[in-house]
Write a protein that binds this DNA or RNA. Structure first.
Lengths: 221, 221
DNA sequence: CCAAACTGGAGAAGCGATCTCCAGTTGCGG
DNA sequence: CCGCAACTGGAGATCGCTTCTCCAGTTTGG
């Protein structure tokens, strides 16, 4: 740990400005981590991230003592976005549409960022920050649910802890079909929504065709 | 490879009867594998299985060259049961009830046997046999779906490849909530079924209470 | 220009699984 | 009930993979 003369014994912020090249590399590592986590999930090695960033492993380890820190740094942004989505959905005029919009938007985030999904839904790493982010998300989700229930559109027995589990279910599809049919999850999202509506006369048409035999085999393999 | 005088150069069946103690141990290993796979999934080591069977690792390796063989041997029975369930469901008088019964029964099988779920839904091991079993299951599932659709009870746009993916979704819940609330999956099963019905006036009451905060945190961690 | 800060990547160290080997034990045909 | 082939158990060799350290060489900035 390098530090210059730093009178304030503040615990958190950068203890001392990094040298220009060091700071540049720190940023490259962060960017690389974002990309690699998003594409390949949280289980990549620090060596992978370093290589992708074009720096040596040593450099990566000097800035981030372990993968945990890297995960949390990258994760923070994703979490922020989810919270923004919730608040935006609450401003939606129609309660049901707001709920659907939020469900869809978060599912899209998770589909586009494997690492985010794993951090949020699989509890793989960085537990502390993740739990904190989830806690910040809960009130908004509860409000979204309550509002749609009061409007008589959403089934009354859905509770706020159900929501992440529904995302987990969808996430399982997303994960497995990732390489074969990266958008089939939308099919099951609509199916879930049809289960969540209070009542309905007809099924909502499913937005993505079903997997054919080949796609199916690959998805399950 | 031990073999006595065996005139027929048959490729597959037991090349020679095992000595009594050897056969006894083979069975113990098989039983142990069944139990360990069911409880802890397919990712257990052969050492674990051997220990659970009360034999040495060497003995286990002598009978089953690799875990694959062990998985397939154990898996076969589970697959057989699923197929029986499908055929039984087809005899159900009411098409919708038959469909629901099959969905429920398979989900129960998967919930009670982690290894079976992983073999069938996660494609972790023993690909050949599993694919074969799935193929045997498809016609029955298709029939079950078609019948319920013709009766106007099941949504018309559901296809047979959708079914295993629905099980996959449910399986994600089962897996995560395993230790905390081993039956919450029933809640989401009903929710899915409400999405699968052609039309309905009211939501079907959910059969299991939602997770509370503590259970939820553990499930996601 | 030079001292301090920083870099890269070879390789040490650790971990956990698979699989082998063989000295000792057991089953069984004669 | 003898003798030997078949079988057993488990210590440990081997492997593959990751994490993390170390330091000779390079870069930065006052």
């Amino acid at each position: 740990m390098s530090r210059r003369i730093d009178p304030t014994p503040s615990p958190e912020p950068h203890p001392s400005p990094l040298r220009a090249d060091a700071e540049r590399n720190r940023l490259r590592i962060l960017v690389a981590a974002r990309e690699v986590f998003a594409q390949r999930g949280l289980d990549v090695t620090i060596d992978d991230i370093a290589r992708h960033a074009g720096v040596g492993v040593g450099t990566a380890y000097r800035r981030f003592a372990n993968r945990e820190q890297l995960v949390e740094a990258v994760f923070e942004e994703g979490a922020e976005h989810l919270i923004a989505l919730a608040e935006q959905a609450l401003t939606h005029e129609d309660p049901w549409d707001g709920f659907v919009q939020f469900f869809l938007a978060t599912a899209e985030d998770f589909a586009g960022d494997r690492g985010l999904r794993e951090a949020f839904l699989e509890g793989l790493h960085g537990k502390i920050r993740v739990a904190a982010a989830r806690d910040r998300l809960i009130p908004a989700v509860s409000a979204l649910i309550a509002r749609a229930q009061q409007a008589g559109q959403l089934r009354g027995d859905l509770e706020s802890t159900d929501f992440p589990l529904l995302q987990l279910m969808l996430g399982a599809v997303t994960e497995h079909s990732r390489t074969v049919a990266p958008a089939v999850w939308r099919r099951y999202l609509v199916l879930l929504l049809d289960g969540l509506r209070h009542d309905r006369d007809h099924p909502t048409p499913l937005p993505h065709r079903a997997l054919d035999k080949d796609e199916f085999d690959q998805t399950m393999a």
